[in-house]
Nucleic acid binder design. Structure first.
Length: 269
DNA sequence: ATGGTGGATGTTCCA
């Protein structure tokens, strides 16, 4: 008897503003677990009724006022992993880790929101860019120290498009934050510590693949100047369990939608 | 070379 688990990741860009669209995502894609980023809701204002109303009996969240924020809604029981680093010592709410109680056995799930990094790709001129590179380096060191990590899934808005065909124009974006060599090399090194790129498992490297289109381009579909900023990674032992990928591109046309679209991965055991 | 849009906040930050 095979067990299928669907895990979704979505930068929702305000949980409270888009509760209705989250319900729509839940109905259209029927994920077992949804990892959210940019919830932009402080913990004391978290909408506690939302998860249950959408059929998710279990949830965890870490938010702050105005910015950042991550949350996980789940049909499977989950236990929060508490002893995770305070990345760059900033107290930001950019990472949530849980253990999912899946029928096939526990799965360690990491939900990340990597700093966007500002506009100028220069550490000196733009401290946000340095923060982004430092965050990636710290995360790399953390997972490098987790030797033997298995049955783990890492998802989130990593704010870096690492491959040539993760952006609409590799050459034109080499100096644009999200696709500069220090970022792409850093992200690839992080992934290689312990993970396999689950999206590129299904879509070859030479095919364009995007999860984000800027709000600043009105006719996003015509210009199609997208980037793959959202990612799903799995430890190598889960590679043979990968059973499907959905990049829910139509969500970019939802009324008052996010600039990111949901991504789902299916695991079959 | 610039500005374009959107969310939370509060007269500006962040993306």
């Amino acid at each position: 008897m095979t067990q299928r688990i669907r895990i979704a990741t979505w930068n929702i860009n305000s949980l409270r503003l888009r509760l209705g669209l989250l319900a729509r995502l839940s109905e259209e894609l029927r994920p077992d677990v949804i990892c959210l980023q940019e919830t932009k809701v402080p913990d004391e204002l978290f909408p506690h009724d939302a998860a249950g109303a959408m059929g998710f009996g279990h949830y965890a969240f870490r938010g702050m006022k105005g910015y950042n924020g991550v949350a996980i809604f789940s049909r499977l029981p989950l236990a929060r992993i508490e002893d995770t680093p305070d990345w760059c010592g900033k107290g930001d709410c950019r990472h949530l880790a849980v253990t999912l109680d899946a029928p096939s056995g526990p799965i360690e799930l990491h939900d990340f929101y990597v700093p966007a990094g500002g506009d100028v790709p220069d550490r000196e001129a733009n401290p946000k860019y340095g923060h982004k590179l430092d965050f990636v380096a710290e995360a790399t060191a953390y997972f490098a120290g987790r030797s033997g990590l298995a049955r783990a899934v890492l998802v989130g808005d990593l704010n870096i498009a690492p491959l040539e065909h993760d952006v609409w124009s590799h050459k034109q974006l080499l100096d644009v934050v999200s696709h500069t060599p220090p970022e792409t090399e850093g992200l690839n090194t992080w992934r290689e510590t312990a993970f396999h790129d689950a999206m590129r498992h299904f879509i070859p490297d030479d095919q364009k693949l995007y999860t984000w289109w800027s709000y600043r381009n009105k006719d996003w579909k015509v210009a199609n100047r997208g980037r793959r900023l959202d990612h799903v990674w799995v430890t190598p032992d889960l590679k043979d369990s990968l059973a499907g990928l959905v990049v829910h591109q139509e969500a970019r046309d939802w009324e008052k939608g996010s600039d990111h679209v949901p991504v789902c991965i299916d695991l079959e055991f």
